[in-house]
């Protein structure tokens, strides 16, 4: 397994790379600050939560989302790097979906932000395909034997977002209240939305 890079070594490497790129006039350091600002404050799982909540309250939007994820997500203003070609997969009483990238760390950035460390780690990537139910159990998700566990390996250029099932007892809730129930992990498939 390659060094995934953490701690002081990674920090040094990043500093060295940044210095080189700036010296060669490939980047303006302020451009890096702008990228960091975007991913710290604007692009993250609250975007995906808005998509999910909209799909829960608007059946036509749900249909568009499942038919053309990229276009439907763009309707809410989310698009771009690592979300250029999106597929949305829907959990149902018969199917529980779960997303992994076994080759590296492919993840739908516009809707979920940058991937958590565990998503990029070798154990999650290896075990999600051979023992998804074991991994799900460790995340506290028990999937009955009568339900199909469907793993999506985002190995190529498609990026996947799970549309979790709307929790029971949320009939009277607003779209905004519903979005607050949608967790990051529920959109990866390693969790379920919070209860109402």
């Amino acid at each position: 397994m390659a060094d995934t890079g953490h701690g002081a070594d990674a920090a040094l490497r990043i500093k060295a790379l940044e210095s080189l790129l700036v010296e060669k006039q490939l980047i303006d350091p302020k451009a890096l600050d702008a990228v960091v600002e975007l991913y710290e404050h604007k692009i993250g799982p609250r975007n995906g939560a808005k998509v999910v909540a909209r799909a829960w309250v608007d059946p036509d939007y749900r249909k568009r989302l499942l038919a053309d994820g990229t276009a439907a997500i763009a309707e809410l203003g989310f698009s771009g790097v690592q979300g250029e070609d999106m597929i949305v997969v829907e959990n149902t009483p018969e199917v529980h979906n779960m997303v992994v990238c076994t080759l590296c760390s492919c993840y739908p950035w516009p809707t979920l932000g940058l991937p958590p460390v565990w998503y990029k780690a070798a154990p999650y990537r290896a075990r999600s395909v051979i023992d998804p139910r074991g991994v799900l159990a460790e995340f506290g998700v028990e999937v009955p034997e009568t339900v199909e566990v469907r793993v999506w390996d985002s190995n190529a250029e498609l990026r996947y977002l799970v549309l979790p099932m709307r929790p029971a007892g949320t009939e009277g809730m607003t779209e905004e209240q519903l979005a607050a129930l949608v967790t990051r992990d529920s959109m990866i498939g390693t969790g379920v939305p919070m209860a109402a």
Binding site: V22, L26, I27, D28, L38, G80, V81, E84
Partner: peptide, 21 residues
Amino acid sequence: MPAALTPEIVPGLVAGGASTK
């Protein structure tokens, strides 16, 4: 000479992406 990547073009680049389709 300005750098290739400047702060002004970051939001557009990020929101536009680069599909390989």
